[in-house]
């Protein structure tokens, strides 16, 4: 049945995808909120940069990370000297897949903030709530359904991430070899068809599961507010 090697890839995938999502989430909320509420000089440029991973080939993203953070680059060299170099480690896989997941999360979260009627914030202000209180007590809780669907999309994207991860973190079994990478290796090796099929199945399960959980959480949150 499922070999230890496959279990290892599965667990590693979860670890990488969870870290990628958890670390991206606050960033996605800050960027999504800023993009929804503020107009500033250079907003379109930021928009392009943030969305770039959606359209740029993942390999290119991985390559750019490598150029930027490889131990022989300036930034990478400094990180390596402090022992924090992410290249060729699971943290690198998490960084690469988090970067690929970020745009999807930002999109969903930004839309959630944009959907909030301005009247709620205005009324809260006249009741004496400061900008900070309005964010924590009105905008953020109201955006929860959107944030959840952003998390699910991001998680599914991170756990399925291939191109950027293999380029930046490489395909090292037990270290950076996540499910898609293991599937790639199995499909490449003679006699690996059965393993490849099992790995493909293992890839599908968390992706679908996370989408279904998010759908359920979103429905529940909407029902509580009488929106559906």
């Amino acid at each position: 049945m499922i070999s230890n090697f496959e279990i290892e890839a599965l667990l590693l995938s979860f670890k990488v995808a969870i870290w990628a999502t958890v670390v991206s989430l606050p960033l996605a909320i800050v960027i999504g909120h800023t993009m929804a509420r503020r107009d500033f000089y250079g907003k379109s440029l930021v928009e392009v940069l943030v969305h770039a991973p959606l359209v740029v080939p993942p390999v290119v993203v991985g390559y750019l990370l490598l150029v930027l953070l490889a131990p022989n680059s300036v930034l990478g060299g400094w990180l390596a000297s402090t022992g924090l170099s992410p290249a060729f480690k699971w943290q690198g896989a998490a960084l690469a897949s988090g970067l690929m997941a970020l745009p999807l999360m930002i999109r969903a979260i930004r839309q959630a903030f944009e959907a909030e009627p301005k009247a709620y914030r205005e009324v809260a202000a006249t009741l004496g709530a400061t900008a900070r209180q309005r964010f924590w007590r009105i905008s953020l809780p109201l955006a929860v359904p959107g944030i959840l669907s952003g998390v699910a999309l991001g998680f599914a994207r991170a756990i399925g991430e291939f191109g950027a991860t293999i380029t930046f973190a490489a395909n090292i079994p037990g270290l950076t070899q996540t499910l898609p990478l293991a599937l790639y290796s199995a499909a490449q090796s003679p006699g690996g068809e059965a393993a490849a099929a099992r790995l493909a199945l293992l890839c599908l399960v968390p992706a679908f599961a996370s989408l279904m959980i998010s759908e359920w959480l979103t429905r529940r949150a909407r029902r509580k507010r009488g929106l559906s």
Partner: peptide, 12 residues
Amino acid sequence: ALVPQDSTLFPH
């Protein structure tokens, strides 16, 4: 304190 026409109670 302003109470607008559509009341705007916070739905959550």
